[in-house]
Amino acid sequence: MGDLQPIQLQVLAALLFAIGLATVMARRNLFFVLMGVELMLNAANLSFLSWSRTMPGSVGLEGQLAPIFAIAVAAAEACVGLAMLLSVFRSRESLDTDAFDRMKE
């Protein structure tokens, strides 16, 4: 076992993203959908960080700065998302995403 290779980090990020996506698509509970979204966001952050270390010729801080913004936005998003979730639950008495089909009409 040598040092951590960049490709390993990227594969990990991809795996995390896939798990997040699978969560979003497989779970019907809105709570878990939100958690899947968070996981996908963090997978993207991990990918950013990894590239910032390993990208040839990259010496800047962009790769490290972007996740900070993403985390801030994710926090706000979680906030709003949870508030909407509460509001939806109050009006529909349900968190099942498959039940929300009124846009079809």
């Binding site: 698509m25 959908v33 995403t97 498959d98």
Partner: peptide
Amino acid sequence: AQTPRLRWNLGLSV
């Protein structure tokens, strides 16, 4: 082809 299911929408988008 349009579906009201959120999960289907997302899957097709991906």
